[in-house]
Amino acid sequence: MSDQTTRHWTLLDRHGRPWSSPCPGTLGGHRRSRIYGRLDCPCALAAIARGGYVRHRVFFLDAATAIAAGYRPCARCLAQDYQAWRRSRKI
């Protein structure tokens, strides 16, 4: 029998509090700008390559959790969600 350690990821909940999850996050976000997007977002990856962003990076299980925590969709990698968010703010 092998000794396997269960891996856990630190995600933010709908209140913006960290919690330990047995599932990895599907979305990444930036704590200071309050934006979330795909893990392969070109904007986030470029910022990481420049040496920034990582210190303030957070992760979410899904978009509903990110929105509930007060984050908005990225205009680049989630363009349709971002447009819907913008329209909802004009009402």
Rank of each mutant, 00 (worst) to 15 (best):
W9M: 03
Y82K: 11
S33A: 11
S88P: 02
R32G: 10
C41Q: 12
S21H: 06
G51F: 00
I48M: 01
R17V: 04
D13I: 05
T10M: 06
S33N: 04
P22V: 08
D81C: 05
C43W: 03
T5I: 14
W85L: 01
T26C: 02
K90F: 00
A79C: 11
I91F: 00
R76C: 15
S2A: 13
S2D: 14
R32M: 09
R32A: 14
G25H: 03
R87A: 14
A44W: 03
R38E: 15
W19Y: 15
H15Q: 10
P22A: 03
R50F: 00
S2F: 06
M1E: 13
A75M: 12
Y53Q: 03
V58D: 09
I48W: 00
P22E: 03
S88W: 01
L45N: 14
L45Q: 15
R72V: 10
W9I: 03
G70D: 10
T26V: 07
R31G: 01
S20F: 02
Q83P: 01
M1C: 10
C77T: 11
R89I: 10
Y71I: 07
A68E: 13
I91C: 04
M1S: 14
L39H: 05
Q4P: 08
A84E: 11
H8Y: 15
I48C: 00
L78P: 10
I48P: 00
Q4T: 11
R14N: 09
S2R: 10
L61E: 12
W85E: 05
R17N: 09
M1V: 12
R76G: 15
A63V: 08
L61N: 01
A49E: 00
L11V: 08
C74P: 01
R34L: 14
R50K: 11
R72T: 08
D13P: 09
R7P: 08
D62G: 03
H8T: 15
R38K: 13
C23W: 02
R55E: 15
K90I: 09
H56G: 13
H15E: 11
P73A: 03
L39F: 01
R72H: 12
Q80I: 06
A68H: 07
A64Y: 00
Y82F: 15
G29A: 04
D62H: 07
Y53N: 06
Y36P: 14
D40M: 02
G70N: 04
W85S: 06
I67H: 02
G52H: 05
R34A: 14
R55D: 15
I48V: 09
R86D: 02
A68R: 10
C43H: 10
H8A: 06
R89T: 13
T26L: 07
A75I: 06
A66Y: 02
L39C: 13
A68M: 07
H15Y: 09
D13F: 05
C77D: 09
G70Q: 04
Q80C: 05
A64Q: 13
